[in-house]
Design a protein around this nucleic acid. Structure first.
Lengths: 329, 329
DNA sequence: TTGTATGCGTTATCAG
DNA sequence: CTGATAACGCATACAA
């Protein structure tokens, strides 16, 4: 394997000079820069990422911390987009990424978790799907030992940023669209899990809309469960005009229930997963560009690792109507 | 961060001794072993994985090489299971894993690809979804520079193993079950892409069954495309008794077409993806345990990295009938 | 602007 | 059985 040493020898310069050229240091003469680059090109030298992270104090890897959807595999789509977006961006930024599942670390204490990440030379962590109940994770964020970007949870401090769409507005918008299209008054709103950060934001959006439009609003907790949404719909939908769900999966459950009850009520979901296209009926939903969200998160990790402070990043969303014709290919 | 040096000092031994204890070397007295372990425990020392891979000649990371399903996001489920199975197993085996998407390396020459993996200190690669057209990948396998495990493609040499289910038998079995249940004679078989390894194997299974059962067999290429399967079904299914598809997605396309044509024909698929549960009708399919396949692949990578030779590993499959009730929760 | 020397945290070699 | 010490490949403070 050709190393930086070979390049240095071949170019007739010192190792440190090669390193400076590679890392775009300012104080290198144009002449040597070209000479080095020529040799790098000729030998096809690619710096060893492992050695780099071990050596540098600034370097360090990024962990993608994912919570596998144990209850339902139907939305792996989301995680997959998160992963691919993050990895693509990381590759572009020359960052080393490893994927970690929450199940691998959930029993750890703060110290254990800290040691675990440190032992992997991890400096930045992107957290997907955090809940209010993840106590150790909260401690980890407060500890300031790692640069952390949290998706969909409002955590910000000196070493922590959050990125997400505006869930409140999105819920407001998609529900409004559905309700206006169908002139409804009595709304059944099925929420997500009570320990999810987005649950509250989306609920607030719905509440605000109810106030603005003077709607009659019934709220029930669906726990992001298709089955639960189905049951709730069976029980309460008959004397409602519309069923607004805080997730696509619940919207599907609600829709199936309505079909079985043989009544029609408009239903709207949230997330824009492909599965929505397969359920027969069209539904309004909020489409998040998960890959893009994830790319932004990695970008933000880069900022934090460069020493900048945490902040809140809001990304755009889009209202769509999903039908089979749009997703088949 | 507590390092091996701290442990050594605290235990009153040399660094190298600590290393030997950690790596279960034979020549260490029981006494010092215990002493070291006690200190390791007390300080909560976790060895730095990056330093280890840089230093050791035996160590090295493994890459998961995935081909993102650009044409259809509906089966991210499969990739996700591959990833989670592999990462779980790797964690257990103390192997460092990175995820690589084929799109990141598809334009590279053999040399570039080799350098790329080498620069990442990668010694083992698990290849998911290889096709006959991936020429550089074939060269990479032949080169012997990496330990490679290929999923679902019959590649074996000194440094290469393959693991998969018995696709021929699985296709034979699931088609047979469907055909017997419905006493069919005229079969429409929709294959996958012509450059896929499993396509041929599954086709052979179908052909053998046709011979054994004296069936009338029509074969059309569906390219694993839902849309294409739909068109083929529209065109040819009317005077057939059954539609056998080489993938679930195509089975769904076929089923939707039949519903639209308002005729009934039994359909069977292949893979056992959750999506099958959402299409209304029940269908026979082959369920692969993708996570398990992936775990076995990583295990096999471990064998190869330990210097053993490549071999063929066949894993079990299962015939199932997927319906909504089974997948909802 | 360039080169020298040291360190990052391990593993491996070899002398004791 | 144990302990120095030299790699591993690169980054960087500091000297030249």
């Amino acid at each position: 394997m050709v190393s930086i040493k070979d390049v240095a020898r071949e170019a007739g310069v010192a190792i440190s000079t090669v390193s400076k050229v590679l890392n775009h240091y300012p104080n290198v003469s144009e002449e040597t820069r070209q000479k080095v680059n020529e040799v790098v090109e000729r030998l096809g030298f690619v710096p060893n990422a492992v050695a780099a992270t071990l050596s540098s104090k600034n370097a360090g890897r990024v962990a993608l911390l994912l919570k596998l959807n144990t209850q339902t595999q139907a939305i792996d789509e989301i995680d997959m987009q998160y992963i691919s977006g993050a990895i693509r961006k990381a590759q572009e930024m020359q960052l080393d990424v490893i994927t970690v599942f929450f199940s691998m670390i959930e029993d750890m204490s703060l110290e254990e978790m800290t040691r675990y990440f440190a032992s992997q030379s991890i400096r930045g962590i992107v957290v997907y799907g955090m809940s209010t109940k993840d106590r150790v994770l909260h401690q980890l964020i407060r500890s300031g030992n790692f640069k952390i970007v949290v998706i969909d949870a409002p955590m910000v401090n000196e070493t922590t940023s959050c990125v997400s769409i505006d869930h409140e507005k999105a819920q407001y918008d998609v529900a409004r669209k559905t309700i206006v299209e169908n002139t409804c008054k009595r709304v059944l709103y099925i929420t997500g899990t009570s320990d999810g950060y987005v649950t509250e934001q989306r609920l607030n959006g719905m509440k605000r809309l109810a106030q603005d439009m003077k709607l009659k609003l019934m709220i029930r907790s669906g726990d992001f469960s298709e089955l639960k949404a189905r049951e709730i719909t069976m029980r309460y939908a008959r004397n409602k005009d519309v069923v607004v769900c805080a997730s696509d999966l619940m919207a599907i459950g609600a829709m199936k229930a309505l079909t079985e009850m043989d009544i029609f009520r408009p239903v709207c979901g949230f997330d824009g997963i492909i599965l929505m296209g397969y359920v027969g009926k069209q539904m309004n939903t909020v489409r998040q560009n998960f890959a893009h969200v994830s790319e932004e998160a990695v970008l933000e990790i880069g900022r934090l690792m460069d020493g900048e402070s945490g902040r809140k990043v809001i990304l755009p969303h889009e209202l769509v109507r999903m039908k089979y014709e749009d997703i088949i290919c």
